[in-house]
Nucleic acid binder design. Structure first.
Lengths: 261, 261
DNA sequence: GCCTGTCAAGAGCAGTGCTCTCATTTATGG
DNA sequence: CCATAAATGAGAGCACTGCTCTTGACAGGC
């Protein structure tokens, strides 16, 4: 799960620990200015409208000079993608942190709502990370860590919920669905990556209730992003009018199906 | 729901009933050739790589001549979008038609699997219709009719299922979640648009089980596309390895939650 | 003080969408 | 049958893009 962010250092994207030289300082500053201008332009015209030349114009520099800081347009886009993942992850984290720890359902709902709110505020950045992969495509490995923040947040909340089998009312809990071994294996790997190996139930729960729940949690993550994408991209345009309420309804359904109390 | 496809005739996209002149015939032919070449190019390089000039080169004509048939690159893309919607809709319809009528769950599953199979076979076309809207965005009204085919297919299957309340085992059915009035209204409008006004339960089912089911059906449509997008765009790359099995698992969960027998 | 590495700027290449003009071909009405 | 009108193709050209290469200026380390 954890990837190497070290490769970034090769073209000095992230802030080095100590910008010793004045040179390095002004370089970092200009790098930020470029990516800020690019983000502004992205918000205006979308990822297709992002032009290195236009960014250079806005900053009053030659287009060729920008290449000193970002080796290509795609690298600039990658930087913006990482920024977007980080931004939406931070927004969700902050919203979740504001809810009392005991209110698991409230925390879950806060994550979902914050994600949607950020998406509505930054539609083009959202499309950049959750829409179709932009150019010749190829997900840089540097993006997977910031991209995992929100799903990890959701899984952490789920982990605090009482075990699925003994929750409030087992009758109301969603019934089990036959799960292929390969899916079981994937989910076990995911659980081990989160909580360390040997955690959770391999066979402790008679019908694999924990696996069912984890499988549904991954579905919930899909549903969250799918629903926001549908709203933003207009796929339910003449069907749902009050999308905020419909979104909340969906998330409440998921919370109940997941049996988060 | 039903939009005017007539505006298309202005630039002769659809096949007129009778191509009287030889001129009209060769025009329709060339229009097809252009859109075919464009689709081929789209499959190779994605929507960003689609170039009017390259299409013209492939057909051995001047780039300016293409504009006699498609007034802009965006209009060509719109034509491809409509074609893609139609293609995936036809694939789903054909797959569904091959299942015995009585096997509702099998028919539903066939629709889902066919949609995924088409998406894996035509990833760029899928990204075109279900990814982020391409350029300056704006969904042409001509696309909404072909886009509705699959969800309508799913709703038709759902309509054949026995009423939610009296189905196999009410205890196993998913529990109800409070539904805001605005969402209720949207769902009633949707139901009326499908089966005519006055159909379905306004208050006949005590806790609005039909509304719950319809709400979950829209969620299922979101989940289907969201899941395919996640697979295609790599959002679960290091989490799910056997995506085919995981996809089936998801759809089975949905079928059970929807209580399709 | 020199030398080396960093930097900005400009010119230039190949490509794009799109518009305009001009010549040619086709269909139609008198 | 022929003239007029419409439709079509080709070419040049504009403004723009990402990107590369070269040139000249500046600053930091020896």
């Amino acid at each position: 799960m954890v990837s190497d962010l070290n490769s970034w250092q090769t073209h000095g994207m992230t802030d080095r620990p100590a910008p010793r030289n004045a040179r390095a300082r002004v370089r970092a500053e200009l790098t930020r200015e470029i990516s800020d201008a690019a983000r502004r332009q992205l918000a205006d015209t979308g990822s297709d409208g992002l032009s290195l030349r236009a960014v250079a114009r806005e900053l009053g520099m030659a287009s060729s000079a920008v290449y000193r800081y970002f080796p290509s347009r795609d690298e600039l886009l990658t930087a913006l993608i990482i920024d977007a993942y980080t931004a939406v992850g931070d927004a969700a984290t902050a919203a979740e942190a504001a809810i009392p720890r005991a209110d698991l359902a409230g925390r879950w709902l806060a994550v979902c709502r914050a994600t949607r709110a950020w998406a509505l505020d930054h539609p083009h950045e959202y499309a950049l990370i959750f829409g179709s992969p932009v150019p010749g495509y190829r997900a840089p490995t540097d993006t997977i860590d910031p991209a995992a923040k929100i799903p990890l947040l959701m899984l952490a909340i789920l982990a605090e919920a009482p075990p699925a089998a003994q929750s409030r009312s087992a009758a109301r809990a969603a019934p089990a669905v036959s799960m292929p071994r390969s899916v079981q294996a994937d989910l076990h790997t995911l659980r081990a990556a989160m909580f360390g190996p040997g955690t959770g139930s391999t066979d402790s729960n008679e019908d694999g209730a924990d696996d069912q729940r984890l499988g549904r949690a991954v579905m919930a993550w899909t549903q969250l992003i799918g629903s926001i994408s549908f709203e933003l991209f207009g796929h339910l345009n003449n069907v749902i009018s009050d999308y905020a309420e419909y979104f909340d309804f969906q998330m409440r359904v998921i919370i109940r199906d997941l049996d988060i109390i």
